[in-house]
């Protein structure tokens, strides 16, 4: 984790809330309940997807949205031609830490698996979420920032949905 020096451990109870929150966000995306996902985002949320290119020796930015950009993106999904089947995000916790009193950093590895209507499953992407989560005065977690760092740069057709 790049911010290793500033991260301090968080109490078990708060870590549990974060785990539950991240899993719920992933479930909403899997279910394509984008409204649920967006409702859990802070109005100032920033959502990025980046990947390192071994060919170019640099980082590529594949998505960079604020809340409106995310909403516009998901609103158009029904109009697009898409791979059939279901997507499932398999998460493994890497680290949870505290950046400020009410701001937590959670890092999860994920595997994005697509199961076609025929029942075949296929690994689409491997990567890592790095989320900044704010608890604020209400003590309700909100997603302030998600950086999806992809290891996979060799793709299946591609997706119209947030990762």
């Amino acid at each position: 984790m790049h911010t290793k020096k500033t991260i301090v451990s968080v109490p078990y109870e708060r870590a549990e809330v974060i785990r539950t929150f991240i899993c719920q966000m992933a479930a909403w995306l899997d279910e394509e309940n984008f409204e649920g996902f967006l409702d859990a985002c802070d109005p100032e949320v920033r959502y990025e997807a980046v990947a390192y290119s071994p060919d170019l020796g640099g980082e590529m930015r594949w998505l960079d949205h604020d809340l409106k950009g995310l909403k516009d993106m998901v609103d158009m999904i029904p109009k697009h031609v898409r791979m059939s089947g279901r997507l499932c995000r398999h998460l493994s916790m890497a680290r949870i830490g505290c950046e400020a009193e009410n701001t937590m950093i959670a890092e999860y590895t994920f595997l994005l698996v697509r199961t076609a209507d025929s029942g075949e499953s296929q690994l689409i992407a491997s990567g890592r979420y790095r989320d900044r989560i704010d608890f604020g005065a209400s003590h309700t977690p909100r997603l302030m920032q998600r950086c999806v760092r992809l290891d996979t740069t060799h793709w299946s057709p591609g997706l119209h949905v947030p990762l």
Binding site: A49, L63, D64, H80, R82, S156, P157, G158, L159
Partner: peptide, 20 residues
């Protein structure tokens, strides 16, 4: 980058449809 990705990125609106 944003203009590129809107059409042609792996999470864009055009290229993946052509592959399909």
């Amino acid at each position: 980058q944003q203009h590129h990705n809107q059409f042609w990125g792996p999470l864009g609106r055009n290229l993946s449809e052509d592959v399909i």
